[in-house]
């Protein structure tokens, strides 16, 4: 059995594929590609692969991670080539690598994510206002958002501690691009749209209808470390 890490992008029409459907999409792509994937034991065997961190539906991911277990050795380049020929439009394998022995699950390793957020304003606003909104927002001791639990009850959560960075990257006409790094993963997850609506709502910014586009640019391990530096086996 060999474990491989795969870095891929999910963009275009594929950004609307839900997490559950991503599982199905990869199952089919793996079968079309003819990869010698390992199967779980049991009554209903399923191919062994898992995703690092589900993307919210509609948000593209530039560098997402998954791991896959094969029953025979293949070169990472071969995996990349075979999968790319079998994946539907919008999903592309960027690179693949052998994983170190006893590597932690990618899912458990992921700690934060960097997002790019484009916000269209109506009417236009100036640079100074956004900049001061950001510093004001970040100076808040707590940022409370409402979440619905599975039984439909509403619950307040403080997400301030999970916002590691929020910066204005550019402002052109009525459109601002922000960059943010927020807590992500199995140990406390913050949704990017939660942060955006808390920010724009708190500062009373005039967001245009359908005026927010979010993309996930990168995933990080603890302390902002690169996932691949932890997971990738050094090729001899």
């Amino acid at each position: 059995m060999t474990h491989y890490g795969i870095c891929y992008s999910k963009e275009g029409p594929a950004r609307f594929i839900s997490h559950l459907d991503m599982v199905r999409t990869f199952e089919r792509a793996i079968r079309r590609a003819g990869l010698p994937v390992a199967f779980s034991q049991g009554f209903n065997p399923h191919p062994k692969f898992s995703f690092g961190c589900p993307l919210p539906v509609g948000i593209p991911g530039r560098e997402e991670y998954m791991e896959i277990e094969l029953v025979s050795e293949l070169s990472p380049a071969e995996i990349e080539e075979k999968l790319n020929l079998a994946l539907p439009g919008g999903i592309a394998v960027l690179r693949s690598f052998r994983m170190v022995d006893n590597a932690p699950a990618i899912m458990a390793l992921i700690d934060s994510a960097r997002y790019k957020v484009q916000i269209d304003f109506q009417p236009e606003i100036d640079f100074g206002r956004i900049a001061s909104c950001i510093s004001h927002f970040l100076s808040l001791p707590g940022v409370s958002v409402v979440r619905k639990s599975k039984d439909g009850k509403e619950k307040y959560c403080d997400i301030r501690k999970g916002i590691f960075r929020l910066e204005l990257e550019s402002l052109q006409e009525n459109s601002a691009v922000l960059e943010m790094v927020i807590k992500t993963g199995s140990t406390g997850n913050i949704r990017p749209d939660e942060v955006v609506s808390a920010f724009t709502g708190h500062c009373g910014l005039p967001v245009a209808e359908y005026g927010v586009y979010i993309s996930r640019e990168a995933l990080y391990g603890p302390g902002g470390s690169s996932l691949e530096s932890v997971l990738q086996k050094k090729e001899e």
Binding site: A14, F16, R28, P88, Y210, G211
Partner: peptide, 18 residues
């Protein structure tokens, strides 16, 4: 592109399938 994230099950309308 602007609208699709705001409707239920946008994959109904995107095309681009295998």
């Amino acid at each position: 592109e602007k609208i699709l994230p705001h409707v239920q099950k946008p994959a109904r309308y995107t095309g681009g399938e295998w």
